[in-house]
């Protein structure tokens, strides 16, 4: 069932006197328990549509319907609440908070999402998720001491700890070697299925496409197939 719809979304940027249209009317629906992969050449607008869908920037026009609510009509605070409770993000370069340990990264996310869990339960939940991404043994480590693959695993753990409905992943394997990329993709696939997540992923790596349920190709701001 589609619980996330993108309808006629456009995005323009103005640089000096020149207006550049990055998205020229994108339509997309995402389904629960599926990984949708957005592919396309550099500059096609795939990362832009992902960040707009994730509420990290505003669309110029169009609608983004999350569970029937139009996100383009929401205030900044309403979008923040959706991001904190319903969305999870995995960025290209993990973007962990450098001064927090692996365990603290996840506890902060639970704190931000205003989970109803008590302190003890939060610690147990963190342990459970870290086991799921096989990072429990590094829970006291800081991001600087983790490998690229480990950092992405922690970023994935942070993205799912608060049980979001939608998971956005922007080139999650871009900074990893082939083996680690496959490990991360297997983990994303497994989590999408077991937690019934709706996952939207941007990638330029064709080797990662077999892990996706649907592949959408973008070019010049349009979806072409």
């Amino acid at each position: 069932m589609a619980n996330f719809l993108i309808e006629d979304v456009t995005k323009s940027f103005t640089s000096g006197e020149v207006e550049e249209q990055i998205l020229k009317g994108v339509n997309l629906s995402l389904k629960e328990g599926e990984i949708t992969a957005l592919v396309g050449p550099s500059g096609s607008g795939k990362s832009t549509i992902l960040t707009i869908a994730a509420g990290l920037q505003r669309a110029s026009d169009g609608k983004i319907l999350f569970e029937t609510k139009d996100m383009t009509k929401m205030s900044q605070e309403e979008i923040r609440q959706v991001r904190a409770k319903e969305f999870g993000f995995v960025f290209q370069s993990s973007h962990l908070v450098p001064f927090l340990t692996v365990e603290e990264q996840l506890l902060v996310m639970l704190d931000v999402s205003k989970t109803k869990l008590g302190k003890q339960e939060q610690v147990k939940e963190v342990e459970k998720i870290l086991k799921l991404v096989e990072m429990n043994h590094r829970k006291d480590a800081y991001p600087a001491s983790l490998s690229g693959g480990e950092r992405q695993r922690v970023a994935i753990a942070r993205a799912i700890i608060h049980q979001p409905k939608i998971l956005f992943a922007d080139e999650p394997t871009a900074s990893l070697d082939t083996k680690r990329s496959k490990d991360v993709m297997e983990l994303l696939r497994e989590l999408t299925k077991t937690l019934n997540l709706t996952t939207l992923m941007v990638t330029h790596d064709e080797e990662m496409l077999p892990y996706a349920d649907r592949i959408i190709t973008m070019r010049d701001g349009y979806i072409v197939e």
Binding site: Q81, R83, F89, H95, P98, V108, V112
Partner: peptide, 13 residues
């Protein structure tokens, strides 16, 4: 950049 990450994960202003 750090504040951007914290905002992205939904931390209140």
């Amino acid at each position: 950049g750090l504040y951007g990450i914290l905002k992205a994960i939904g931390m209140k202003t």
